[in-house]
Amino acid sequence: MSKMRDRLGEHIGPLCCAIGVIAVVALYAAYQPAILSAFGIASLANASVTLALAALGQTVVLMTGALDLSIGSEISLVNCFAATFMGDGTTSIVLVVIASLLIGVLAGAINGVVVAYGRVAPLIATFCTSFVYAGISLTLRPQPGGSIPDSFANLLTGNWGLLPFSAVLLLLAVLVIWLPVFRSRLGRFILAYGDNPDSAFASGIPVRRVGMAAYMLAGLFAAIAGLFLAAETTSGDPSIGNVYTLNSLAAAVLGGVALTGGRGSMIGPILGAILLSIILNVLSVVGISAFWQDFIEGGILILVLGLAGIRLLRAQSWTSLLGRSQS
């Protein structure tokens, strides 16, 4: 009985998200049936994929027991870079895509060095680097603009019947990056390090390199998100990624990822991202003013992050409850 409850507890995040997605889509469809058309599905998918990618990146870092507040800036940076240099030729498109991914990984590596080797607390370290990356974005592109070739934009944002290409992109990211990592040594090391850094160290795990790798993976996911945003908006905007920093955290937590590390899945954050994106989408479609949108969004975030701490209230002794807030 208690075992079943434990099992359920493990998957409660993804499960709630799945139910939430179905409920919100049903309500939305009742209000606006066009949402179930091929175009509607593609636009919902496009709105969700960026956040899903950001949430996956955030999840890798959360699983090590840290967090990444620079994900939004990394997305903006890659977005500005791509919109500025992509040009029209196939060769230049391919080169810029590769360079964009490398920039994401490099930005992640810088985070990793500051956190793992510089021993700066993740919260502060990534908050600081987020300003550095934002500064570079602004230098590249003081105003929103630039251009993205139609071929690239259509490749990522089009649809094939009911199947949006953006969903394929997300699937590819999961198949090519997430699954290999978590079926290999690195994934185990990431989870072990997040579960208990001291045990990891005493087991001979190269803890600092593992911490760095997590940030580099987060940067890679952020880069893909940035490229996708470039295709979606066909331009570069140095502030476009800002909202994804906190939203990625919320999506991950909503999907059942523990802020204390050691636990997390891939499906939870994706469902969390879809749910959160649709809710935000609904808010703007219903015509709620931008101020109230931010207000509600912040409220949802606090609610989700607060709910994640409820589990702690089951602790028996004060010593295990105090000094152990979730972030």
Binding site: R185, R188, F189, L191, A192, D195, N196, D198, S199, A200, A202, S203, G204, I205, G262, R263
Partner: peptide
Amino acid sequence: KNMGGFMFLPIAHNVTITILN
């Protein structure tokens, strides 16, 4: 608790963490 094991990880992963190579 503090230096030996990974409490949230499966038993199997705890055992093989040293021999993943």
